[in-house]
Amino acid sequence: MQLEQPTQDPDWSGTIPSALDVRVLGLVVVTAGLAASVNIPYGGVPVALAAFVVLVGGGVVGHVLGERKLRRITDGLVERWAAAGGQIDDVTRSADGMRTEWTVHTPDGDVTVGGVALVPIAQLSVEWQGVGDTMDASEAAANLDTLADSLYEEVFEIGVTPQRA
């Protein structure tokens, strides 16, 4: 007796890859450097280096947490779309590492989900057919079912004409 396997495209692994953003990490390092340099006249180079390390560490943690939040939202959207009957071919991340963004490949077109991955100001953006929307990531996570339903209607049910009896 064999267990029945789910019918999915072999390219779709069922996971959302991580997508760290080099631009955000660069911004964290530059901001930490500027903020730490203010400490040189007051505490010297050791205090400035300690401040730099603390600020960079905090910024990297903020980025990783923001990326995880956006990845969980993307995973939730894809999971709900697939459960509602939408065909998901694959989910890929931005290839160059310069954006926290994923492309959800569907037969009806590509949906780009991403945003600013830096807690506490994380923002989610969704773009499909050149039209995009941005919202607070915490708000999107809290209203994920509603967001998934409205996006499902736009992406998968567009062009479907109702049958008349």
Rank of each mutant, 00 (worst) to 15 (best):
L77N: 10
R71K: 14
W102T: 08
Y42P: 00
L34G: 11
G59N: 11
Q2S: 13
M98Q: 08
M135E: 09
V78Y: 11
L49M: 10
M98Y: 14
Q163G: 04
F52E: 01
V116D: 14
A19D: 08
V104T: 04
A83V: 01
T106H: 06
V53S: 12
P120K: 07
L49S: 14
D136E: 06
P6G: 01
E4M: 12
N39I: 05
S13M: 06
P107G: 07
T134C: 03
M1G: 14
A19R: 07
G85R: 14
R68T: 07
W128P: 00
V24G: 06
L55Y: 12
V113N: 07
G132E: 14
V28D: 10
T134G: 02
T15Y: 12
V22G: 05
A137V: 05
T103P: 01
G62W: 09
V60M: 10
Y42W: 15
G114I: 00
D21A: 02
L20W: 15
I73N: 08
D11A: 13
P41Y: 09
L118V: 01
A95S: 10
E79Y: 11
V38W: 15
E67K: 04
N143P: 00
G130Y: 14
E154S: 05
A32V: 01
T7L: 09
I88T: 10
L147D: 03
T7K: 15
S138L: 09
V104A: 02
Y152L: 03
T146H: 14
V116C: 04
D21K: 00
Q5V: 03
V47W: 15
A36N: 06
L65V: 09
V131N: 08
E153S: 03
T103K: 02
